[in-house]
Design a protein around this nucleic acid. Structure first.
Length: 232
DNA sequence: CTCTCGATGGACT
DNA sequence: GTCCATCGAGAGA
């Protein structure tokens, strides 16, 4: 009944409080190190367990990063980004999607790492049920569509606003991080963050990382023209 | 108070 | 490729 991944047959070790230091640094440094680690939800009594390997992430800093929710200081929504590293920051967007982030920053700073895609690992049936329940009947819901996108993976794992502020490193937390790393031969790739206006993203800020060639990585949105019809 | 628009996903041409 | 559902955060009046 108690924690420690193995006891529930997870097959990987859950990160705990002593490992908070791994997240207490510049999110641009920490983000790529999350690739291969595991995001687990539904831990605890009666939880519906689901987990996936992190295969795509984006780093968001604070006052020097206009694309970050933390850019203009703390508000009711982004307040968790200012909490201790290892906190879970969940926000609601586009009127229908949740996105989840691992809080990561240096002392006295704010920041977070958006989890953009998972390779489903545990609870595939559960994921499919949750995804299907909120979708029109799409009989061809492919395995790769379960968690390949920030909104999709939150839906698949059942992560939503009530989970905002959870401590991913706490024994009692239903959402945790699990140990993991890229497999031999799995290369890291990086590029511009998705969904950010080019002026705020690309130039010198390739703060999106993914496991090259992994089929579960989300499809990057194609670039859109700038106002005036010109392209970057 | 009103208005805009977003760290998106899915259906459709 | 295009369109749009749907709503809260944040900015401004």
């Amino acid at each position: 009944m108690k924690s420690a991944g193995g006891e529930r047959g997870l097959g990987f070790r859950l990160l705990s409080a002593p490992e908070r230091a791994l997240l207490a640094a510049d999110p641009v440094e920490v983000a790529p190190s999350l690739l291969g680690k595991v995001l687990v939800a539904g831990l605890g009594e009666g939880g519906r367990l689901a987990a996936g390997r992190i295969v795509e992430v984006e780093a968001y800093r604070s006052s020097d990063d206009p694309a970050s929710h933390a850019f203009s200081g703390p508000t009711r929504r982004n307040e968790v980004m200012f909490r201790r590293p290892g906190s879970l920051y969940v926000y609601f967007t586009y009127g229908m999607h949740h996105c989840c982030n691992v809080v990561s920053h240096e002392e006295g700073e704010a920041g977070a790492i958006l989890i953009r895609a998972l390779e489903p690992l545990v609870g595939l049936d559960e994921m499919e049920t949750r995804r299907r329940a909120r979708l029109r009947a799409d009989a061809r819901l492919a395995a790769t569509a379960l968690c390949s996108g920030p909104g999709r993976l939150c839906q698949a794992l059942g992560i939503a606003r009530p989970d905002d502020g959870l401590d991913l490193l706490a024994e009692e937390s239903p959402v945790r991080l699990g140990e993991g790393r890229p497999r031999p031969g799995e290369a890291l790739a990086s590029g511009a963050r998705v969904g950010i206006s080019p002026a705020l993203s690309s130039a010198g800020r390739p703060w999106r990382w993914w496991l090259a060639g992994n089929p579960h990585v989300s499809t990057a949105r194609s670039p859109r023209p700038l106002p005036g019809g010109r392209w970057p």
